[in-house]
Amino acid sequence: MEECRLTGDDIACLRGERLLFRRLSLALSSGEALHLAGPNGIGKSSLIRILAGLRRPYAGVINRMGAIGLLDERPVLDEHLPLGKALDFWSRIDASAQSHWEQLGLEPLADVPVRYLSTGQRKRAALARLAGQGAPIWLLDEPLNGLDSDAVATCESMVAQHCASGGIAIIASHQPFAMPGLTKLMLGEYAA
């Protein structure tokens, strides 16, 4: 995987009238992973969107080298389409082959419309979409929500594999995330 880097310098986040966090700096390079932890409402999702470039930080600078892959609470798949076709759309956009189908147990679901899938199945489908994108920087917002214990292990090993091959991962989660070499950032320490 290509060389990648993600740095944030002195970031502050304003949500409405409220300053969520401030003076937050982070730097990740190829192969590193970071666990953003903290209670609900502390600004984990906002930070993920800021790092993705989808939200402007109230203060601070973000530097990215490498494409961003984002996994949030939405699977971003057409609800009325069978899962296979819905994922095919992203395969065409990303010009990639479908990957991790077997590992994520999606094969039996290929003909099931997305709207009939459970929360955990949607999350697994979203992981397949993310893996197919081939982006070096993964931003995962609550990736373990709704997953059963097997799927949690699969997700953890996918992220570990991604970092082992030179990718970056940032995991925002209030749940523990088991992975070698994971550093933890308590967002609460930067609360304003």
Binding site: A52, G53, L54, A67, I68, G69, L70, D72, R74, V76, E79, W90, I93, D94, Q133, A135
Partner: peptide, 13 residues
């Protein structure tokens, strides 16, 4: 709402 525009933006579309 479903996040398609976010995903497109991340892909430079």
């Amino acid at each position: 709402e479903q996040g398609f525009f976010d995903q497109w933006a991340l892909r430079g579309i």
